[in-house]
Design a protein around this nucleic acid. Structure first.
Lengths: 243, 243
DNA sequence: AGGCGCTTGTGAAGGCGTGCACAAATCGCG
DNA sequence: CGCGATTTGTGCACGCCTTCACAAGCGCCT
């Protein structure tokens, strides 16, 4: 079993953080646990059982215990998990104590919303710059931030390390923007454009396609409709729509 | 194919086979394939090989072939897949020929963007109504559509069958909105609020949490940083688990 | 017609993730 | 101090998904 970090709080500069290689599925759930933990903490709870936290996060309790066990033993048998401790630990693992700088490229409908999205700031991210290729949009102020031309990207990146780039451009521009981001040192990209990006292997890309989500729902609608049309339609399955 | 069910001949509209039960992972990729197919079709291609389509969709070719094989044999060995035929087939499977009506609840930053998102209309979805609980927003016109009060939801649902409801409210209101949507017969929900919704088993919920995506990227940033921080030496991810 | 090259469709193997069931550990109380 | 109630941590089995590798099928060229 992996050991606790004895180096006390944060500060990985000195000791090797003994980074556990967590299963990808677990990583994807950690933010959900974190949100539930914050919610519980605000409600005044000190500890929480795996059952309780699992319910708040919408998962199975065994799965939650196994997930948390991957990052060490932070629970007490017979009692549960210390909420404050677990929050710190999960935030550390996710690197949320770094207050990472985010830039948004493409100030259309979606980029506009992202620039003002409160959910980012409240979770340890700072939107520090907005870019667009359209000079008519340059200078426009959104959420107290002026839109800059994409040509200024390198200049901004030189001033402050951009941890994450968000692409909210039309798909035709997305690859070019990705290339630009990579060129200035961004190694994590969140892509809202419906297209495949090709990037160097050390760069992580996550894609969010709103239309795809609707299409998946549409499929299930279609399936449900054709099942109820069939004689003896069974509908005992319960869906656990995941990632 | 060997998996065809010839048992029930209760044909639906026109010789369509009984609904194949596709793996969930396959369903999630079908929209991606569809997008790539449309792209290829616009470029003038008639057919495409699994290799080519896989590259355009950003997946492995073997996976693509297995996915497509689940919905029947629509390829020709030695040639590839007929693009037009495959487009029709995938669109049918996904139920995109139904031109489903979508409503958006919550006209904040994000809801505003969703109301105007062109990607919906271009893929067989019609945003037919916008709702908000804030009477100051009611009447505001977005993308040629007036925002209505949430109390009008039942009235709108009576006029037109709402296939999908999109929740873009603060998390505190999300459950109440979900209950309302379910009450008027909506059986598919796309939830942008960072919270867990509880709904009847026949209702599908998909969740999109933009902050979670950033947090997952943040984790990988953190991991990459701590790996490169290690002096090129030891890099054993093996845990010294005795016994 | 026959052979050759190309591509699909699929059996099989391996890996990953999930959920069960239970041992180990901790607290509270008599 | 010991015992029972409670809850974590985990070994194990199962099922889904991915990937490989290859036989089967198709078109084209000679």
């Amino acid at each position: 079993m992996s050991q606790h970090r004895h180096g006390s709080t944060s500060g990985e500069a000195g000791g090797v953080p003994a980074f556990p290689d967590l299963p990808e599925a677990t990583i994807a759930r950690l933010p959900e646990y974190l949100r539930a933990l914050h919610h519980l903490a605000e409600a005044g709870a000190e500890t929480v059982s795996s059952e309780g936290l699992a319910a708040a996060a919408g998962v199975n309790s065994a799965k939650l215990r196994k997930d948390l066990s991957h990052l060490g033993s932070y629970g007490t048998r017979g009692v549960g998990y210390d909420i404050a401790l677990l929050v710190d630990q999960v935030e550390y693992i996710l690197g949320l104590d770094k207050n990472r700088a985010v830039c948004v490229v493409g100030v259309g409908n979606l980029g506009h919303a992202l620039a003002g999205y409160a959910g980012f700031a409240s979770r340890g991210f700072r939107v520090v710059a907005l870019f667009d290729a359209d000079r008519k949009k340059v200078g426009e102020v959104i959420n107290g931030m002026a839109v800059r031309h994409i040509d200024d990207l390198a200049r901004v990146a030189a001033e402050e390390t951009l941890a994450i780039g968000v692409i909210a451009t039309p798909p035709t521009s997305a690859q070019a923007v990705a290339d630009l981001l990579v060129a200035v040192g961004v190694t994590s990209i969140l892509n809202f454009a419906p297209c495949v990006l090709s990037v160097p292997p050390n760069v992580d890309v996550r894609k969010v396609d709103l239309a795809i989500e609707l299409q998946i729902l549409s499929f299930h609608e279609h399936r449900k409709a054709s099942l109820t049309a069939l004689p003896g339609g069974r509908h005992d399955d319960q869906e656990a729509v995941g990632s």
